[in-house]
Design a binder for these strands. Structure first.
Lengths: 209, 209, 209, 209
DNA sequence: AATGAATGAGGCTTCATTCAT
DNA sequence: AATGAATGAAGCCTCATTCAT
């Protein structure tokens, strides 16, 4: 069997095992068995547990970002929607992808962030990409509304972080609640967020009493 | 030294070690050393690694919930504020507590959820408590507004989940970004969420194009 | 059983196993078994295969040097013999010790020198001590004879090296030939070497044709 | 590429790798890579690691013995020098060869002797050849001197062993000390040994005080 | 109330070797 | 004449846990 095929089998098995057991609890023995190969072959191709995990993180992160990008992009590969349309498309793609790849999502969201610097940094880079994308979208909306009081970069960053965090949380909720569709999750968040953002852009603020 | 004091030393050491290293990577050896006691004593008091970790989760979960409750409650122990005031107080208490107990927060938010059922269930119970609290708050607001289209329980639950997720994400963001205060984090989320909720209650919805 | 005793058992087992099998071929499993303890205990006390091997080298080197020193020294701890008497005493002690500790000698002479820098350096230090001792002895003899052509430091060093090499070779020969006593080996080398040195000191040289 | 050439490439790679890493630490993978061929080819031609190592020992032993023989022999292939001349020529050839083939010398002197019987026996056979040669030479000298007390075969054998050991030690010393030539090493040993032997033949003995 | 001494079990990694082509 | 693909076996090391005092 050609090397490329075997490598994909192993990575699939690794994502599944890491996602379900965690980095430390997953054993190379189990990964090899799930992949249907012997352990030495895993080492021959993927070198070490650490490299294997890193490769999993990279592959799943790239796949997730690609899915979101593809959702946002129009047919010509360039995003040609208004900001809210882009956000909607991105969220839908995000929830669809995380629902279709629960193990990959677990690797990124749960495992990679909890097992030390080499891995956390890897996934932080991907998350930053998503946060930057969201920051840009609400930045556009803010500039259009151009009102007082204006938003600082830090305000926008915090908002984007809250939004991405809400999306991550909803992805878990959707994965663990039967019958929730990607569109429903996207709708919930979109209603909430876009309305909230709209209010903020219109100058509304909450203040004590 | 009395048993209660020793036990607290050990739990402190365990929370710190579990929070920084993760459940599997933390060794009973290191915990005992950090606690300044011998390993058999840890076993005498806490019985096993699993029980020790569970005890840590329970203690930290209880502390977090208590902090939020205390923040929300008035001087007589009963919450006597309007819904938005309660949410503000709860968020402030939440961000204050997570900032002051980063290791405990790491145990709850990162470690407990990534190491299998016995632990995930433990922390899920606590999270459900927070979600239920938030659900109740926005349920009250929704009932006050009593408008069309009404919110289903599932809608409220999804919203509360998104809100709690956003709060968790902001807690991490605040812990890793220098100079962010609990009040700032609470303000960001409050502005965003209460405005958004207000809009939703007023019947606003986002829809494609 | 107290730690010190156990440690000695382990080191004895390690010297024996390393001496007979070689560094790589000796397994920690076998060492533990020979020592009559479990493997983890070996690691608890001696930390790693590398550290264990280094400890063996150091212990055996110190023992050999101490044996030679004790042989050379008079009853008051200071060497009070003439140069030839010291050499004789040192050689006798050397051959006696290597015959009584064949595994330790194998560790020093065969294994430590063939398994890379960390170990080779360790044993080279000890050998240099012996070479320096011999160099000093023949240096004294040369100065007494004070003749022409004089010996350079390098000449003396080369001679001492040859002498030590001859002694090492004879130690192996004595260990593998039944019925050879330490005194016989010392006598052979002493006759040969002291006569040769005497001739050299008297100005004799060999030259082609 | 013809088989004989390939085989030589592999043996060269093996000698180099075994000499530098040791028998156990050298991997067939590295040998194949250094040789520039695939591993199965190494097995096709050399059958196993053990056979490969044995073949290396034999080849290098034969080369060393041949070099010494060639050095000793006159132009007609028969040694026609007196005993001391033969010893000088043999030593010079020995030091020259070991300096020019350090990896081969390491295989013979360090690795083959430290990795168990099959290999140690192989190199012992070669060493015995050299010892026999030296024994014969000094035997001739002894017979010429025909004096009292006579030398037993064992005396001669012990002497030859000491001499060969001194030569081996000097070979290492020369290989590790910059600027030492084969002639210098041979001269040092020759001066020392021939003078010593001459003294012995003349009946000199060393005795305690 | 507390610990020094000890181990069964299991995980990561590497290696010599073979098969099918 | 030559190799890409593959594995059984074994070695180093660590860990949760217990016993005797």
């Amino acid at each position: 069997m050609p090397r490329a095929v075997r490598e994909r089998q192993m990575m699939d098995a690794a994502v599944r095992t890491f996602g379900r057991r965690g980095y430390r609890a997953a054993s190379m023995d189990e990964i090899a068995e799930v992949a249907g190969v012997s352990k030495p072959l895993v080492y021959l191709y993927l070198h070490s547990k650490e490299e294997l995990f890193t490769a999993c993180i990279r592959r799943e992160a790239a796949a997730l970002v690609a899915a979101v990008r593809a959702g946002v992009a129009g047919s010509d590969g360039e995003p040609d929607l208004p900001a809210d349309g882009q956000l909607w498309a991105g969220l839908t793609a995000f929830f669809t992808h995380t629902a279709e790849h629960p193990d990959g999502w677990a690797v990124l969201h749960q495992q990679a962030r909890t097992h030390g610097e080499p891995f956390a940094a890897e996934v932080a880079a991907m998350r930053d990409e998503l946060v930057a994308f969201v920051t840009a979208l609400i930045g556009v909306a803010a500039r259009d509304a151009r009102q007082d009081p204006a938003f600082s970069d830090r305000d926008l960053s915090a908002l984007a972080n809250a939004l991405v965090g809400a999306a991550e949380s909803l992805a878990d909720w959707a994965n663990h609640t039967p019958g929730v569709t990607a569109k429903e999750a996207a709708g919930t968040l979109m209603n909430f967020a876009w309305t909230g953002l709209g209010g903020l852009m219109a100058g509304h603020r909450w203040s004590r009493s």
